[in-house]
C-alpha cells in the first residue's frame, strides 16, 4: 500500500457530480491497493454522504462539496466538507431494517449504510461548514 497518500476534489453539489466523485475515488483506491470489497464499501459510504449534501445541503442557489482522501498503511480517511445547512448524520436514529414492506421507510438508510461499512464516523460544524470524516481500517492480506 502506498504510504501517506492524499488527494482532494471539489465538485458542485449536484447529482451528476456523484459519478465524478466515484471515478476519482476509484482511481485513488486502486492506487492505494485497497482490497476490492473494502473499496466498494468506501465507495458506498462516500456516495451516501455526498448524496445527502446534494439532496439536503444547499438551497436552490447550490454550492460545492469538497472530498479529501488520505491513506496510511492502516486506514483510509475521507473528509467531506460543505457549506450547506448544518446536518449531523451521527445523530440520525437507526432505521427499522426489520419492518415489512408496508411499513418500510427509505429515509435514513444512507446514514445506516455509512455507519455499517465504516469503522468510524465523525462530524463537526466548523466555520459554518459541515465536516464529516469517515474512517476505514484496512487489514492487509
Amino acid at each position: 500500500m502506498v504510504n501517506g497518500d492524499s488527494a482532494e476534489i471539489v465538485v458542485p453539489a449536484t447529482i451528476d457530480a456523484i459519478e465524478q466523485v466515484a471515478m476519482y475515488l476509484e482511481e485513488f483506491l486502486e492506487k492505494t491497493e485497497v482490497p476490492m470489497m473494502e473499496a466498494t464499501r468506501i465507495q458506498l459510504a462516500v456516495e451516501e454522504a455526498v448524496t445527502n449534501v446534494v439532496m439536503h445541503g444547499y438551497d436552490d442557489s447550490g454550492g460545492d462539496v469538497l472530498i479529501r482522501l488520505e491513506s496510511s498503511p492502516a486506514q483510509i480517511a475521507i473528509t467531506i466538507i460543505d457549506a450547506g445547512a448544518a446536518f449531523d448524520p451521527t445523530t440520525i436514529p437507526p432505521p427499522d431494517v426489520t419492518a415489512d414492506l408496508d411499513h418500510r421507510k427509505i429515509g435514513g438508510l444512507g446514514v445506516h449504510l455509512i455507519r455499517s461499512v465504516m469503522d468510524e464516523v465523525r462530524y463537526a460544524r466548523e466555520r459554518d461548514q459541515n465536516k464529516l470524516t469517515l474512517i476505514k481500517n484496512i487489514t492487509s492480506g
Binding site: T40, Q43, L44, E47, E48, T51, L101, R104, I106, L109, G110, L113
Partner: peptide, 20 residues
C-alpha cells in the same frame, strides 16, 4: 450489477410496492 446504494434500493422498493 457490481454496486448498489440506497438510491438503487429506493427504486427497487418503490417498484415492489407498486407491483404487490
Amino acid at each position: 450489477l457490481t454496486y448498489i446504494s440506497s438510491s438503487g434500493l429506493r427504486v427497487v422498493l418503490a417498484s415492489l410496492k407498486r407491483l404487490r
